[in-house]
Design a binder for these strands. Sequence first.
DNA 1: CTGAAAGCGCTTACAG
DNA 2: CTGAAAGCGCTTACAG
Lengths: 335, 335
Amino acid sequence: MATIGDVAREAGVSRSTVSSVLTGRKFVTPETRARIEAAIAKLDYSVNTGARALATSRTMTFGVVVRFHEAEFSPALATYLVAFSDAARERGYAVMLLTESDGAEAVRRAIAGRQVDGLILLNVLDGDPRLEPISRSGFPAVLVGNPEDPRGIDAVDLDFTAAATMLVDHLVDAGHRDAMFVQWPEELYASGSTYATRFEREALRRAAERGLRLAPVPVPVGPEQVRATLRAALQDPALPKTLLIHNDAAVAMLPFVLGDLGLEVPGDLSVVSLHSAELARLYVLSYTAVESDPTAVAETAVEVLCRRIETPQAPARRRLLMPRLDRKSSVDPNE
Amino acid sequence: MATIGDVAREAGVSRSTVSSVLTGRKFVTPETRARIEAAIAKLDYSVNTGARALATSRTMTFGVVVRFHEAEFSPALATYLVAFSDAARERGYAVMLLTESDGAEAVRRAIAGRQVDGLILLNVLDGDPRLEPISRSGFPAVLVGNPEDPRGIDAVDLDFTAAATMLVDHLVDAGHRDAMFVQWPEELYASGSTYATRFEREALRRAAERGLRLAPVPVPVGPEQVRATLRAALQDPALPKTLLIHNDAAVAMLPFVLGDLGLEVPGDLSVVSLHSAELARLYVLSYTAVESDPTAVAETAVEVLCRRIETPQAPARRRLLMPRLDRKSSVDPNE
DNA sequence: CTGAAAGCGCTTACAG
DNA sequence: CTGAAAGCGCTTACAG
């Protein structure tokens, strides 16, 4: 493989001059620049990113720290990963995957090994142990999630509070006074999942404010359980026939259960939901919904992280992306 | 951040001696080793991976080249990515995500920038343009997929030919003589998808050999289309009520359609399928099936890639993982 | 505008 | 068994 020295020799200039055209940080006369570019093309030269990283102490790489929770349901994860990689490349950064099951350890090693210039933490929890090594070191990072205490770290997320308001209002405005609140497994709330908790809190608050009675129905993990729980709930005469859903697994399974029971939306049932756009892409989900938007989240997070790297002392910010309500006439007017 | 020099000074030895205990490639007396380890702990030192990479010309990083095809359906992609990252870390390698839409260009840049020691190509096609820059440069790589001509590159995949044999045999052994062959969209075969093509070819061959008539039903992309196509096919009296399915989107949608039509498996319909284990994890899929196994594929691919890096001159191999038939009594005996 | 020199943080023959 | 020196391929003040 050609090095910068080979290019310099071929072009008859010094290595520093080649470096100047490579980085573009110095003016070089058009003639010498042309000679150098010709040499680069001839030798098929390309800069050794590792050597450049050592010299500049910038790796031009982000680490994406993936965390799993068994109670979750994430056909959308791949979409997020690709969205982050694309958004990063757009700004000249590569993306390294950090999947260690001990997330705090992964963070510590990534920082210590200086393999990345910044970290993107997916799926951040309240009290997430991954925050500690970051806030202690002041290492550039962005949280995807919205913890109560972000420990001085920038955070980006869909605004799940606003999403809850929108969906509750949508039901109330259509005249509904009672709804089943189909929720994530209880473990997910207990684990500190910020999207679960934020949505729940506001849904309950807003429902109380607007006079909507909410009957919570937590749905346990696993396809069989989801199906059984939904079926039982829909057959329970004590439960309302209006559904506010925040559980991707339940939304995905709902049509199966409706089929089992011979029920139709919006005829027999009114449904609103908050789920990932990926779900809607894969299944026929014709429910009025707020969809999460991986591309927007990824682009914003990468933008925030880049800014953080440029101006490390700037105060930490929380950026919540306003969700969009996608109306699909799955809600019957109810007077 | 502490450097190897700081550690050497703290321990009162030379940098080379510190390096010796870091790499473990030389014997160091227990006493000095202990002093050095104490210094490392005290300074919270950790080796700069980039500098090491420059000195050793080994980055200890693999690039995973992701390719998308609109006709595909991949809730399993994230599972694959995590499986690769885990398998790589097991052997001391990190994983970089390469998602550029121009895959050949991504490969070329990864090789030229020496950011990775090896490449893992996901979802390889017959005539895949990403193979060219690899076979030209002889860069270490492993294909996940099974192209007709792997261009001298190692390849790892589930044995889709064996999977087809198993499923056809399973139907024939149960006495079936006619089956609907629910397939991927035609574009996927046209694009050169090796898993689609390999399965199709063997299914047709084996079916002919064993006297099973196969009625091909290609299913187009998109949830609405999948549902409509399946519904039409299941209502068509000319088509058999036995299904051999190779299309994850169709398998996932099948229960919806059965609900629509009030059909039951195995009562009204016999079903066998080849789909990703991820699908079965998310949905109630109680069909006799061959499931793909991301963990096994990832571990084998990483193993093959490591071996390739160690012995570059070894002849290229093709490793096909034997699938496992998971019997679920979705097939009625048919005498 | 261009070049010689030092340095980024490691590893690895090579002496001792 | 340990250390001094050179080198990996870049960039960046600093002279000229």
